[in-house]
Design a protein around this nucleic acid. Structure first.
Lengths: 202, 202
DNA sequence: ACCGCTTTTGATTGATCGTTCAAACAAAAG
DNA sequence: CTTTTGTTTGAACGATCAATCAAAAGCGGT
């Protein structure tokens, strides 16, 4: 079986993340994997198919690669949401505020993406927000009954992506922290509103 | 005086927005402006300096290019915030959900940006959030006294960027709308909290 | 008309891009 | 050993990239 495929995917995951898709050349992938071009093109029809493989790997491995480490030792559903954000925070710190979400960066870098690619990026977002939505449902009556859980789950992703973008741009985690703090306030206010009869909209 | 510079900047603003910086070739700029390469390189030392010019133009023109049209006929400070978001919404609709924030896209596309470029992107974000912060201060006692206005202003940008990213990825404005709706809820809850003695954190 | 300076022309450069393919090689089956 | 099938080699291709530069053209001042 071709372990070449795995080597390429692994290298591509890192290089696309570090340099982006367009700025990563096939030559970069070859030198990183110590393969020859023919081997790559024996496994992947084109560079774009490498990207497809990368996105599929992220999508299929989101639990063991992302959620499992982020949620280790955390059981409370709402705290798991903020534990996930804390996990991204660690990524920001660990890269000297250079961190970018691998999916989000691709989402904005690829301006005229292949339909397959765009749908795979969307599928990654769906896997992410879907897991958050489960946590929100698990939170039950702690949140307002009529709250749109899917919308709030998307909002958590919004906060993460927007916070990462600004932290990276300013080279300062504080921008991410402030975004998370605002989201925490939002959750606090929602929990507060769930406790007493709703007065405003929720 | 060189109107070549203006022509190039104008073309680059559109092409960088449509295709991104890396995917826009100097040849693209030349064919769009009907100039020769020598003319471009007479005015700009390199392609990157065109990007610098574009970012400076955005930064210097943010009021007349963005805020003025978005805020026409809207006076209430908080409604101006949502009028600005509605203006982005119009951009999403007008591009068949292909719209990306010109600055945000560059922020994520450029992985190892020149320090000048990165600071210019940061300056654009600062100009944006600074204007929002002014609106929040203008809102006065309608918001909790101890609310961190700068943090909330950044959160508005976070919401816009994250919402635009998701709407574009899913090719569906609803993702942007839901993000804005969550932010509206957040503002409602804050205004509500400002009215009565604060119970939770704010 | 002439000068000095700015601007434009556009062919050309060398580098790098993604991709190809005939040939060599490896491994398993007959 | 022979054949078949799958995999790797790596030089080469044409396209495209950002950037160059000597020569030509424009132009205000005298």
């Amino acid at each position: 079986m071709s372990d070449a495929r795995e080597k390429i995917i692994k290298a591509a995951m890192e290089l696309f993340w570090l340099k982006g898709f367009n700025s990563t050349s096939v030559a970069d992938l070859l030198s990183r994997t110590q393969l020859n071009s023919g081997s790559l093109y024996h496994v992947f029809p084109s560079k774009q198919d490498v990207l497809v493989g990368v996105l599929e790997t992220y999508r299929d491995g989101i639990h063991e690669m992302l959620f499992a480490p982020a949620w280790a030792g955390v059981d409370d559903p709402i705290e798991r949401i903020f534990a996930l954000l804390a996990y991204y925070r660690a990524g920001i710190i660990g890269t000297d505020c250079t961190y970018g979400c691998p999916i989000g960066s691709l989402a904005l870098e690829l301006h005229e993406p292949d339909p397959n690619v765009r749908e795979l990026i969307a599928a990654n977002f769906n896997a992410w927000t879907g897991a958050i939505e489960n946590l929100l449902e698990e939170a039950g009556q702690r949140l307002p009954k009529n709250l749109d859980r899917a919308a709030l789950a998307q909002f958590v992703l919004t906060t993460m992506e927007g916070g990462v973008m600004q932290a990276r741009t300013h080279r300062d985690v504080a921008y991410f922290d402030r975004a998370v703090a605002q989201l925490r306030t939002h959750f606090d206010l929602l929990e507060q509103a769930a406790r007493k009869p709703a007065k405003g909209r929720a």
